[in-house]
């Protein structure tokens, strides 16, 4: 038996919106400690990770570990039937064929219940080790979304250069080229405002990435004020959005290589 309650449906809506463009169907692994999801996009270039800890839910029960295969488009459609501040409960019995999702209004006078069919999804999973990144950029997630949008007007690829001075995003295309530099601020405090950027760096590092994937990652911006971009030479770049006090979404993107 699985049962998980979140006080506000808006959080679950934002989580599903953040990954459904990249991943059409995914296995949700429920265990005593929480929920995990790992999925690659169709082209196997980007990897999405979701981790929600049990203590982030207002109620959480998982009698035995269970994997539920869910079509994210269907999940998203059902979540659109919830008001943002509805309480949401998800429930599945052992060997269930569907996931039960119910919404309760704040006044507790309206309760709706939906069932989404579960599916068997046969996918390869990978083991992602903890890495010592050469550079970590911590910046406003809104700013990240804006830069991705701006760069996409010019090019298809983006180069991220992290140095002690800051982080530079650049692109080029048939129409021309452009770059945006965010200068490193030593401390991120109230005075600097939430838009400031910090770059923790061991060695300067540069990566070229496909912008269309970053546009998908930017859909996680409503979940978190900040995003961290973690770079290491010759390895995927990791983008992390923290989900309040309960977990994170991480996206890994393989770098582009010039031939």
């Amino acid at each position: 038996m699985i049962e998980a309650v979140l006080p506000q449906a808006s959080l679950l809506k934002k989580i599903i919106e953040a990954i459904k463009e990249l991943v059409s169907e995914a296995n949700f692994d429920f265990s005593e400690t929480g929920i995990r999801l790992q999925a690659m996009d169709k082209s196997h270039i980007a990897l999405s990770f979701l981790h929600l800890r049990n203590d982030g839910f207002s109620e959480y029960r998982c009698d035995r570990s269970q994997t539920l295969g869910i079509n994210l488009e269907s999940f998203s459609k059902v979540l659109k039937c919830a008001a943002n501040d509805d309480q949401v409960q998800i429930k599945a019995t052992d060997k269930a064929e569907s996931l039960s999702i119910s919404f309760e209004s704040t006044a507790k006078d309206r309760v709706s219940e939906f069932n989404v069919k579960l599916m068997d999804i046969d996918i390869d999973s990978v083991d992602v080790p903890d890495m010592d990144y050469q550079a970590t950029v911590n910046m406003s997630s809104q700013e990240f979304a804006r830069i991705v949008r701006d760069m996409m007007t010019i090019g298809e690829a983006i180069t991220i250069d992290a140095t002690k001075q800051g982080v530079k995003f650049s692109t080029s295309g048939d129409a021309g080229e452009g770059n945006i530099l965010l200068r490193h601020r030593k401390t991120i405090d109230e005075e600097d405002g939430p838009s400031s950027t910090s770059v923790e760096i061991n060695e300067p590092v540069s990566h070229s990435l496909a912008l269309k994937f970053l546009a998908n990652f930017a859909k996680a911006a409503p979940l978190a004020d900040r995003v961290s971009i973690n770079l290491i030479e010759d390895a995927p770049v990791m983008f992390e959005f923290k989900i309040s006090d309960m977990g994170h979404i991480r996206f890994y993107l393989a770098p582009q290589i010039e031939e």
Binding site: M40, S43, H44, I45, A46, L47, D124, S125, V126, D127, V128, P129, A157, S208, A210, A235, P236, Y252, L253, A254, P255, Q256, I257, E258, E259
Partner: peptide, 14 residues
């Protein structure tokens, strides 16, 4: 030409 490698090439399968 730009080559895009598969993410699976970087991580071991479980």
């Amino acid at each position: 030409d730009i080559l895009q490698t598969s993410i699976a090439a970087y991580f071991a399968a479980t």
